[in-house]
């Protein structure tokens, strides 16, 4: 009985996860090393990877700072009423329930050229939708809960006593945060960063809608894969996908490592 279950588990993993990953690797080499290099060295590939990189960096930085701060407020703040805190707490999860396409649509509706705000920004020469700011916004929306949800339980677990102790010893909030709170939540934050990077690296639906997928301008790595597939250029798609997949596997390894550190502390 036990053997059967273990065999079945292995079977599911191999069919569902291992074989596809292997396929991406072999697929990218279908036309040899040169095919892979060619797919990657196209102008649009390089540009798309650069766009993805920029989005990842910007989104991760913003989401980390705001996510940690918001988690601190939602757990510790006394100036928020209990009811309001509960409400905000459930609002945090909303982006999980929103389809990325809808997330993108929201931003187009709010800030698109035909909306009031969008028109205003256009007038002052600041393009949001179909440009980098909109794509960053869309990715921020999608990744928003990741950091908050990582840090909040940690803060709840360590409790506020150590922070209170610091305050009776004369330390103000900034000093207390860096010397008392941060060391306890740091691995949670790192785990949250890894999740945010993974999600912003792979975000597709929301970015596709907001960016308009304009080649060499707003195209990201994932939307390039999509376009290549639509154009029946599967080998090229494979090349870019391989880069993304390699990053993901790397992130997965970091995730495991961060998880272990998180459990130790």
């Amino acid at each position: 009985m036990k053997k059967l279950w273990i065999t079945l588990t292995y079977l599911v993993f191999i069919l569902l996860l291992v074989v596809p990953i292997v396929k991406i690797f072999t697929g990218a080499w279908q036309e040899g090393w040169s095919g892979f290099i060619e797919a990657l060295s196209r102008k649009q590939s390089l540009h798309a990877l650069m766009m993805t990189g920029m989005i990842v960096v910007i989104v991760t930085a913003i989401n980390t700072i705001f996510g940690v701060m918001l988690a601190l407020y939602l757990v510790r703040a006394t100036w928020l009423g209990r009811r309001l805190k509960q409400l905000l707490n459930s609002v945090v999860d909303l982006p999980f329930a929103v389809s990325p396409v809808i997330g993108g649509l929201m931003i187009v509706l709010m800030l698109g050229p035909s909306s009031i705000m969008g028109a205003f920004f256009e007038d002052i020469g600041f393009k949001v939708v179909y440009a980098l700011p909109g794509m960053v916004l869309a990715t921020l929306f999608v990744t928003f809960p990741l950091m908050v949800r990582e840090v909040m339980p940690l803060l709840q677990e360590i409790g506020s006593q150590q922070e209170e102790a610091a305050s009776t010893l004369g330390a103000y909030s900034w000093y207390t945060f860096w010397h008392v709170t941060w060391p306890s939540i740091r691995w949670g934050v790192i785990y949250g960063i890894v999740l945010t990077v993974a999600r912003s690296l792979g975000e597709f639906g929301a970015v596709l809608v907001v960016s308009g997928n304009i080649m060499n301008k707003t195209q990201t790595a994932t939307t390039l894969v999509y376009q290549d597939v639509e154009n029946f250029n599967v080998t090229a798609a494979n090349g870019v996908a391989l880069v993304l997949a390699a990053f993901s596997v790397g992130l997965l390894l970091i995730m495991e490592w961060a998880k272990k550190r998180k459990e130790v502390h």
């Binding site: 102790a165 610091a166 305050s167 009776t168 330390a171 060391p183 306890s184």
Partner: peptide, 20 residues
Amino acid sequence: LPPQERGIGFVFQNYALFKH
């Protein structure tokens, strides 16, 4: 006055030592 400026020492029930 905030606790920082009251010149007090506080020993907590579970000590609240900085564990790191």
